[in-house]
Simulated assay, not measured.
Amino acid sequence: MEICTNKQWLWALPVSFAALVMTGCQERPAPKTEQATTTKQEKSESIPLIQAKVVLVKLTKPEACDADGCMQYDIQTVKTNVKWIDDYFIDRIKKADPIAFSTAPNQKINTAEGANPNLSQSSTYIRFVSQQYDQATFAIQTYTYSSGAAHGMYHQEFVNFDLKTKKRLALQDILLKGTEQQVLDTLYDSNSIWLDQHSIERTKLQLSDNFYFGANGIVFVYPLYELASYAEGMTELNLPYAALTKLVKAEYLPSLPHYPTP
């Protein structure tokens, strides 16, 4: 406005009125409520929206050989927009298969008596599964075939991250203190038909540390042969969220509808 850009005329006014006009032209600080809103927004934006793709891991020794034969490695991991998650999986991979990253030369294979060299296989695939606000779930799929075996062995491990604390969530991290037995009993009751069909008594069932947050509940995953045959694969037992409201910490449960009681 002209009253703020051209101030020469102010000298003709009384001193008190001129001071009042000058004060009105000064920039006012932002209200405290706006600053508080910005702070909350920044906290919300600190939770990343996971973007992930599967990429090959460069190996120094994709085929490692000793006197008995060779092991071929196929390793793929996730590349995300969160560095500490990428680093976590690379560290896991290197600890699980250090030979694939070794710079030592391969040994000479023993081919005495015209025997064919043994050739085994090891595969590791990591993929992004899902995200529920500040919780992200990934899966580590592994397959190993030893030369001469009837079949290979596979496993799937789920890894759940708390994106606020930047840590992996173990089962004891999400359960309320002292509720382990209640969770186990509720898990058995929720899957009693399948467990009865497989002759698994209540006293034989244990909680699995391998779990993920499913659409309808927490899913506990058991390795091959523990609860069922190889042909049936890895067992998954679902524990509905509605049964966990007093067993799992509230921050690790989704917001559930309030269904009318009959």
Rank of each mutant, 00 (worst) to 15 (best):
K7Y: 01
W11T: 05
W11Q: 13
V15H: 00
P31G: 07
T38G: 03
Q41T: 13
E42D: 13
E42M: 11
E42H: 08
S44N: 07
I47T: 10
L49E: 14
I50M: 08
P62R: 07
C65I: 03
D68T: 05
T80G: 05
T80H: 11
T80I: 11
I93D: 04
K108F: 07
K108S: 14
N110C: 06
T111Y: 06
P117Y: 07
L119S: 07
L119I: 10
S123A: 12
S130Y: 08
Y133H: 14
Q135K: 15
T137K: 01
I140P: 02
Y143C: 01
S147N: 09
A149W: 09
M153C: 07
H155K: 14
F158W: 12
D162H: 09
R168I: 12
L169M: 13
A170E: 12
L184H: 06
T186C: 07
Y188H: 08
D189V: 00
S192L: 10
S199W: 06
R202H: 11
N210L: 10
F211I: 09
G214A: 09
A215L: 10
A215K: 14
V221I: 14
E226M: 09
A228N: 12
S229P: 01
E232H: 08
E236S: 15
N238P: 00
L239Y: 05
A242T: 03
A243M: 06
K246Y: 02
Y259L: 15
